[in-house]
Structures are given as structure tokens and as C-alpha cells.
């Protein structure tokens, strides 16, 4: 009997700490100009909401294709690029959690090769950073990538091979996960692999950024 009670209490404890989704707002929008805003049908808790999005676009200019996205207030998503060439189809998902997730976000002008941004303290073992950027230019080059790295519990570091662009970022602290941050060997050929501590692939997702 004592063992049974213990197991029940343990399960309840784990559940109380688990992240759980309150609601997901999803949809698509066309970006035909430099910016487009999406008004969600309801407000979200900004401290507990994460924006995921992806885009497709038929264009060869970096000012047209590099699109950044962010939640500007508790009911608005903004997507932004430097130019307006081509129409981008953007699919977004805003995940609002009821518990177990804390989100910080911001917009940073990456005005040198390395830019450090102070953040409220997070636990590095269960936090990760997401970044998107927009930039001017006509061809994809060494100035069109940026990495976002949590270097300490209170510092988010952006690194690029150029400067003068804007990055929108989110730092997500997710209570019920374990995060490995991997800086892979430089990719100079066609493939590069990194060894990681073994994970259950059925319970693991990847968030990646790179600089050129």
C-alpha cells in the first residue's frame, strides 16, 4: 500500500510540473509588402506563448526572402522583411501554454559580428533560443545568417559574419524537457554530423540556426 501511494504522489507531482498547451492559433497569411500583421482572434499570454512559422517564396533576393516574425503584443503577429519582392506564403502557429513554459522575446539590431543581449535568468538545461532575421541585399551571402546561442543563463549571443540587420528572437524555458546545445563543426563540404547524448527520438525536436 505504501508503494502505491508513493507512486500516485509522484505522478501527480510530475504532472503539476509538465508543460501543457492551452491553445494553438494557426493560420496562413500572404506577405506582399515589407510587413504584414495578423490579428489573433483572442489574446494570448505573451509570457507563455511561442511563435513558430515557416515560409515559401519564389524570389532570389535576400531582402525579399529573409522574413522575421514576432508577437508584437498579446493579439498580434508581425512578419517583416527589408524588401517587397515576391509574395511569401507564411504558415504560423502560436502555441499558448497553460503552465510550465516561460517565454522571453525581443528585437535586436545585430550591429557587429557578436552581439550579447541580457535576458532574465533561465535554466540552461531546459531552455532554447529561436531566431529569425531580415536584411537588405540582393544575393544570399555571408551576411545573411545568424546564430542564437544561450551562452549563460542571462545572456543570449548573436553571431554573424556581418552586421547591420535585425533579428527577432524568442527564448523558451520549458520545464519538462532536457536541452542539449550543439555547436556543430563547420560545414565546408556537403555534410557534417555531431554526436549528441543519446535521446529518445520520439520525444525530441530540433531548433537550429546557422551563420555563413
Amino acid at each position: 500500500m505504501a508503494r502505491f501511494v508513493f507512486v500516485c504522489l509522484l505522478q501527480l507531482s510530475q504532472l503539476s510540473q509538465a508543460a501543457s498547451v492551452n491553445y494553438i492559433y494557426r493560420g496562413s497569411v500572404s506577405l506582399t509588402d515589407a510587413t504584414v500583421s495578423v490579428t489573433l482572434c483572442d489574446t494570448v499570454d505573451l509570457d507563455a506563448s511561442v511563435l513558430f512559422f515557416s515560409t515559401s517564396i519564389n524570389d532570389a533576393t535576400t531582402s525579399g526572402t529573409l522574413i522575421a516574425g514576432r508577437l508584437t503584443d498579446n493579439q498580434t503577429i508581425e512578419f517583416e522583411r527589408d524588401g517587397n519582392a515576391g509574395t511569401a506564403e507564411i504558415y504560423y502557429q502560436v502555441v499558448e501554454y497553460s503552465s510550465g513554459v516561460s517565454v522571453q522575446r525581443g528585437s535586436t539590431n545585430v550591429n557587429s559580428g557578436t552581439v550579447d543581449v541580457g535576458i532574465s535568468s533561465v535554466n540552461l538545461t531546459n531552455s532554447f533560443a529561436m531566431v529569425t532575421m531580415f536584411n537588405n541585399g540582393t544575393t544570399y551571402g555571408s551576411d545573411d545568417g545568424v546564430t542564437a546561442s544561450l551562452t549563460t543563463s542571462t545572456n543570449l549571443r548573436f553571431q554573424a559574419n556581418s552586421s547591420g540587420f535585425t533579428a527577432f528572437w524568442q527564448v523558451v524555458e520549458y520545464d519538462s524537457c532536457t536541452v542539449q546545445k550543439i555547436t556543430s563543426p563547420d560545414l565546408t563540404g556537403t555534410t557534417v554530423s555531431s554526436a549528441i547524448t543519446g535521446v529518445n527520438t520520439a520525444k525530441t525536436m530540433v531548433v537550429c540556426s546557422h551563420r555563413n
Binding site: C177, T178, T190
Partner: peptide, 26 residues
């Protein structure tokens, strides 16, 4: 379970990656 790979078809330019491997425990 132990390998993260980045793959491209071309090979111009050098790329540096930062990746987060997020294993959920819930």
C-alpha cells in the same frame, strides 16, 4: 538517437551551426 546531421548538395561557403536538441520529459 545520437547524431545530428546537416546536409546540403552544394559546398560553397562555410556554415556554422548552433542547434538545440530538446528532449521532452513530459
Amino acid at each position: 538517437s545520437t547524431t545530428l546531421t546537416h546536409t546540403r548538395l552544394g559546398s560553397s561557403g562555410t556554415l556554422v551551426f548552433v542547434s538545440y536538441i530538446i528532449e521532452f520529459t513530459d
